[in-house]
Amino acid sequence: MSDALVQARGLRKSFGAVEAVRGIDVDVAPGEVFGFLGPNGAGKSSTMRMIACVSPRSAGTLSVLGMDPGVDGPRIRARIGVVPQLDNLDAELSVRENLEIYGRYFGLPRRHVKEKAAELLEFAQLTERAGDTVEELSGGMKRRLTIARSLVNDPELLLLDEPTTGLDPQARHLLWDRLYRLKREGVTQIVTTHYMDEAEQLCDRLVVMDGGVIAAEGSPAELIGRYSTREVLELRFDPEHRPTAEALERHAERVEELPDRFLLYTVDGERTHGDVVGAGFVPLSSLVRRSSLEDVFLRLTGRTLVD
């Protein structure tokens, strides 16, 4: 993929003796939304910082927009937008000034940033709050402002590091809607997240990272198809009458035992439920659901993602 916006080969990052990223290959095509999925400490943010040209790589090759971050950092940064994990808005400036001054850092003319700021305030639904200081905004509003700020230079590539962590469901959905609109406008996005539903909502393609390496790669549907079954039957038992995983195994393709429940991977959850009950195991509660990326992650790493 030579027209990739981002291409990494054997990319590594170490901090002293700690290796945060241990040799990854990544290709991000123009126009796609690409996800890094993984638990805290998987190496997602370190990778993002390298792509954002604010962290020199320790080994491997990396090209962003066809340039080398080690050589052309400022030139690359001029064409990308960054939404960091933690909001770092300028608390000494108003909401509007945050956008206008940020635009000036890119060398954009005053008149242009004025118009751009008005447009972005509208996009982030913050026009009424334009004169407020940042402190007066809610968490969701700050996040929207941070995203609006990252768009001030009309970036070709947008880097979003855990864009909705810590937001309530309503604020998350509003953000997802905004990101989806950007995708339709053709802005390539790279998203890190440890939320499965977010990855499934947003990403065309993603990699699952764990311990600094890539454990799997594909579209959400591909990954589910490859590493999981169509349906999952979740069973909870009374601790006194809890069967062993081995006893359940012949009713499903695969069984995962979690502290509070069993996950039975199967094509038809209802039928499996009937089989299990027929075999004399009576669960306290049961739930049939579609497989999700959470199941993929569990399969790949043997752990749940967010504990």
Binding site: G73, V82, N88
Partner: peptide, 14 residues
């Protein structure tokens, strides 16, 4: 604390 410079380094500023 304000991580102000981090936000600036996401722009061409060094």
């Amino acid at each position: 604390y304000a991580r102000l410079y981090d936000s600036m380094l996401a722009t061409p500023l060094g």
